[in-house]
Amino acid sequence: MPRYRMAFSKEGLARFLSHLELMRTWERVLRRAGLPISFSGGFNPHPKMSFASALAVGVASRAEYLDVELEEELGEAAIHHRVSQCLPEGLRLNKVVRVPDGAPPLMAVVNSALYRIKLKARQPISAGELSRSVAFLVQQPAIPVERTTKDGGKKCYDLKPMLFDLHAYTAGEMVEVVAEVQAGSSGNVRPEEVARALVSTGLAVDPHPFQVERLGLFIRKGGENHCPLEVNE
């Protein structure tokens, strides 16, 4: 069955959709678009679609990816046109590409995410102070971070090997952090964990992010990032 990869954004009020709600919404979008979707078998048939990586409630994104399997071959432009007309406000389709048969699923290859995290400063922070904090953090041999698990327990992990890149800027009363971190099945860093790590250096910001946006999802190979849409290489 032909598989298509869709790049989309999730913005405005739509960023408050949970991952489950987003999946349900896409299922309905694809039906409304009248695409010949392929279904899983069994008593509860579901459209064959899979997402690159779940996005937390409230996080906006300009680079989400979704693979959809169809019953028959259709032009990318036609799919783009039909789907775009059926999307609710806040979701936008950016690109559709045909995925070669046998290409690995999105979830297996996407392993890096780029976030912009806006943090409220608790007191005025100078650019110098901020860059010293960032430099201090990235020079640490280990960055222990605590995570609350689903059952309410706490566990600790080392953020260091999963933090690929970190920059921060002052913007009025905000600090804007741009962080590239590991994502996907072998380990997922949460944006608020990066914020907490910065607070642990003594930076006077609110550890609860004011706003988070995912700027990109990548396939990271040998220190180099590839866009999930580059399917033909």
Binding site: F16, L17, T25, R28, R32, P88
Partner: peptide, 18 residues
């Protein structure tokens, strides 16, 4: 900016449905 990030199931209040 202030309210929806603090409540459970925020899509109860966003409207904007299809």
């Amino acid at each position: 900016q202030e309210i929806l990030p603090r409540v459970v199931k925020p899509t109860r209040y966003t409207g904007n449905e299809w």
